[in-house]
Design a binder for these strands. Structure first.
Lengths: 338, 338
DNA sequence: AATATACGTGCCACCGGTGGCATAGTAAAG
DNA sequence: CTTTACTATGCCACCGGTGGCACGTATATT
């Protein structure tokens, strides 16, 4: 077809200079009303929309937002993407995804390359990569805009959105105890991650307040995978057969617990209660459906997107925009009163 | 820190014109060996890498590949993204995601806008959007590069990658019958999708060859969701209690069948066998683990990426590159010999 | 009435590359 | 020893916008 109209076409048709058209499309204030209307009309008529490449080249911007992660949970990623995109598309940005490998040496330079090569305007970093102190420092040094999503408050509030996992785990602990549970086992996440630590501590802290003891041998550190859940559940249930309730650091591992219980002929939730975390795809599908904790992932991601765009455009985030969101308990069938 | 080096810096340092540097970074053949080496050295030394924006503006390219989809299956999307990215990053492209709403009126213009605004070099279209004839036609008209992923061969082989669902379903049918199943029920997918039709037909066709009848009232059309699976399973199992095996069009619905069986006190696989499709996250986690069909999604996506890049760069895809891949049966615990 | 201030607009350079063409240098052909 | 034919390289315009500054005109100030 005929080529897309450019700013020059619009300028010619409206009988003004391209500079003025540029002002209009950027919403500059100092344009005469009549002129603005004329130009708007031409824009509508021709279907003109500015070329992001050219705009980017001239203004040193790309209208691209990067998403950096190293997370196996596809569902989580998907929710994040949708949340970010809902904001992006409205503001004229596009989302470029960049899964990476957190454990390689060139991980940081890889991310920097990614940003600088495509002139990405800003990046959103997902856990657990978001916990990498060094990455954040490098980005800050290079003056690259970033926002982290995390479970702990470890940055300026304009650079982070955190879910209060600890508070959610307090709720879960109270809930379990209120149902009469005293013999509790835990399959924690890797303690090198803040998020896993937060959850464990929030849980233990509250149990402690309620005078419920969890002997150290009833706490097993898992790796957050289904397989790891199976392994840990076996160890835990053999080693401490009196355990009547298990909290697993995520739904994947909780599913592993269900599997092992089934193998061992233990009925859930009659003989054993199980709680997960994430409200994964699995959670509602598994039998019995898992009682778990749901983070408002999409909302968090949208908030992160709003923050990064605010940084990029230099508009301050409104003070009402918070940085802390609280996950909430989803009660299903896997926990039963003793 | 100090700004990124530009082509001008490299040219100056190497004592040549920027045009020659441009030739080197584009792998043009007509550059003297000595010159090339000198330039390469400077590039390495300075860490120069060409600015995609500028390159794009000049050459009318963006080095961006778009991914268009309207698919609720996060796991599928995730696998696709990883597959595409493995090829992209190697060839210097980035991936821009664009979930959309297949059912809105402006769906097509929305996609076109997406492509033209960011000058996306080419798009990969996932099912079920990939079945939209009109979209493909519009793209072709506008000379936008595209590759579709689908379950039916409905385009030039350079524009499509198809998984042979029909063949996979033939295998599944043979497998079920070989295990003695004769009383088979089906929860199909929406028949307006080719993929669902292909699966149903492949399955029925083979059962027919093997002289197994499936009465029409044992075929129920579902909507591919878990909830729909539950609903259809209820109808089917109440209406035709003699059914001893069910094929569900995807794992989500198969999980629904499992749920209903559990509710009704029917043991799977002892009293009822169940098969799914997709090898979803659920498949292995659910109890009993689902026998299902796995498509090599990542490989298909990588192939699609290679095809789209070949189109963009004008290099023909090697003839050995096929367009057809065959899914394969994953045998787990949900089907048992009668 | 003269001067200062503000506003609306246009001109031109520039962002960092690529395309087309001109040109110098060198090798092959006559 | 020319003429021809390449090969290697450079020059300059251009892609489609934005930034900085100058300029003309209208309004406010003294």
């Amino acid at each position: 077809m005929n080529k897309r109209p450019t700013i020059n076409d619009v300028a010619r048709l409206a009988g003004v200079s391209k500079r003025t058209v540029s002002r209009v499309i950027n919403g500059a204030s100092n344009v005469g009303k009549a002129t603005r209307e004329r130009i708007d009309a031409v824009i509508k008529e021709t279907g003109f929309s500015p070329d992001k490449q050219a705009r980017g080249l001239a203004a040193s911007r790309s209208f691209l937002i990067g998403l950096i992660y190293d997370n196996p949970d596809a569902l989580y990623i998907d929710q994040v993407q949708r949340g970010v995109l809902s904001v992006c598309s409205e503001k004229g940005y596009e989302l470029v995804v960049h899964p990476c490998n957190y454990n390689t040496d060139d991980f940081i330079s890889n991310c920097i390359q990614f940003v600088s090569r495509s002139r990405i305007d800003g990046v959103i970093i997902l856990p657990p990569v978001s916990e990498a102190k060094e990455l954040a420092e490098t980005l800050r040094e290079k003056q690259i805009n970033y926002v982290r999503m995390a479970s702990v408050d470890l940055d300026d509030h304009s650079n982070i959105v955190v879910s209060d996992d600890r508070a959610a785990l307090r709720d879960l602990a109270r809930y379990m105890v209120s149902l009469g549970h005293r013999d509790i086992g835990i399959i924690s996440g890797p303690q090198r991650y803040y998020s896993s630590k937060e959850r464990l501590e929030g849980f233990l802290e509250t149990l402690n307040d309620l005078h419920v003891e969890v002997p150290i041998d009833r706490i097993i550190e898992g790796k957050n995978s289904y397989e790891s859940g199976i392994e840990c559940a076996r160890t835990l249930l053999i080693q401490s057969p009196r355990v009547k309730a298990i909290f697993a650091n995520n739904d994947e591992m909780a599913a592993g617990v269900l599997k092992v219980a089934h193998e061992m002929g233990i009925t859930v939730p009659d003989e054993l209660s199980v709680a997960g975390f994430d409200d994964n795809l699995l959670a509602a599908r598994v039998i019995p459906a898992l009682t778990t904790v749901q983070r408002p992932v999409g909302d968090m991601a949208a908030l992160a997107a709003r923050k990064i765009i605010a940084q990029i455009e230099g508009t301050e985030v409104s003070e009402t925009e918070t940085y802390l969101v609280k996950p909430h308990l989803i009660i299903r069938d896997s926990i039963k009163r003793v």
